[in-house]
């Protein structure tokens, strides 16, 4: 798994590449926490090159969403969610907790 962070005026774009499972999810959680600690609560997660995500990754997303939405200071949105991952998120009832966008431009423009 590889994470890159790009800062925009109104939000941060966090790109996750590769596979997120119980081994790599702590790294994702750390990256999201680091953004929050830096005062960034408006986050776009780009999943274009994400190959796989287990419930360990969902857990990291949920924790971040909770923290970002606190005091209405922001939110986590998802962009380019691959079909298989979208299906798993749906099964877990997560799609109603996150706005999803078909491309990063629209997602970034949301903020």
């Amino acid at each position: 798994m590889e994470i890159t962070v790009q800062e925009f005026k109104h939000c941060d774009l966090i790109t996750i590449k590769g596979r997120v499972d119980s081994a790599t999810a702590p790294q994702l959680a750390q990256a999201l926490e680091a953004a929050n600690e830096g005062g960034k609560y408006k986050l776009v997660i780009d999943m274009k090159d994400l190959e796989y995500m287990s419930s360990a990754g969902f857990r990291a997303l949920l924790a971040a969403q909770r923290n970002c939405k606190k005091y209405n200071r922001g939110e986590v949105v998802l962009a380019n969610v691959p079909e298989r991952i979208r299906e798993a998120l749906e099964l877990a009832g997560f799609t109603e907790l996150f706005k999803t966008f078909d491309d990063t431009l629209t997602a970034v423009g949301h903020f």
Partner: peptide
């Protein structure tokens, strides 16, 4: 169906 603040992550793997 719980909202964000009530949502529990435990048991999700087994549910899947």
């Amino acid at each position: 169906t719980a909202d964000l603040s009530e949502r529990k992550i435990g048991g999700l793997g087994i549910y899947l």
